[in-house]
Amino acid sequence: MHEYAFFLGCIAPNRYPGCEASAIKTSEKVGIKLLPLCGASCCPAPGAFGSIDLNIWYAMAARNVVLAEQMDRDIALICNGCYKSIYEVNHILKHNDELRDGVNEVLKEIDMEYKGSIDVWHLAELYYDPKICGVDKIRESVSRPLTGTKIAVHYGCHLMKPRKERHFGDTDHPMWIEELVAALGAEPVQYRNKMQCCGAGGGVRGFDLEHSLDITNEKMINLQEVGADALTEVCPFCQLQYDRGQVEIEEKFGIKYGLPVLHFNELLGLAQGMSPDELALDLHAVDVTPFLEKIL
């Protein structure tokens, strides 16, 4: 069993608890144990918080990392926004003495010290990594293949970009999440401008909702074009933007898409035989039933 401190973030535990539940259950079936990271906070939101003062963003993210250092476990998480904060701040502080000293000066006030002793991973990359799990193990864990469904993938921005500060390689046409989706028995579909942002990040969703939804709408048009049965992603904030965003797009622009949006963990949960009730899919704003009818 590979053990990790499970960093939850905000939107997964507080809006889509199915993402959290499925992460814990699906990972156990492939040899990954997620331990609760008690007292963790918001990562904090890189766009909303980092825009105001990057120094506070470093210190707040470092506090979360220190909690995992105290457990002596690497962090695993399920949200791209959290990845941006936790992975990147950990990476920066490991290599920048000046910033690390500044952060530690603040953390001293609450009896903490950032040491730089752990690493940070997205659960999806652990699923893909053959040293930890790998596509084959994911395929073997499937008891209810998603045969006959066409699934589009939204990678999101902050997991793989900026490329130079990550380790995923190609950010123009990545295919690794499609490999994971195919392992569930579904057919991954390609669509125009796959790597475009969902529109929610950088505080734009809160600053100018219509602008942000217009970006989402462009993606929805491209997704509709290829007839996907569902969209999957690895970021609850992207999920919120696509899921609740479709309701807002209907209100504001009068266009209805009805495309079910599922976190990859939820999709994996369904493929491993979890019931829709165990995933709280009724909390999704867009009805997931048309997709479920194809697989149940």
Partner: peptide, 22 residues
């Protein structure tokens, strides 16, 4: 600085979360 950014700060200060439980 736009208001929504500051409201996130207030939420995190009070609850630890930018998007609190309900």
């Amino acid at each position: 600085v736009p208001r929504n950014f500051l409201k996130t700060v207030q939420a995190i200060y009070t609850t630890g979360h930018g998007v609190p439980n309900n």
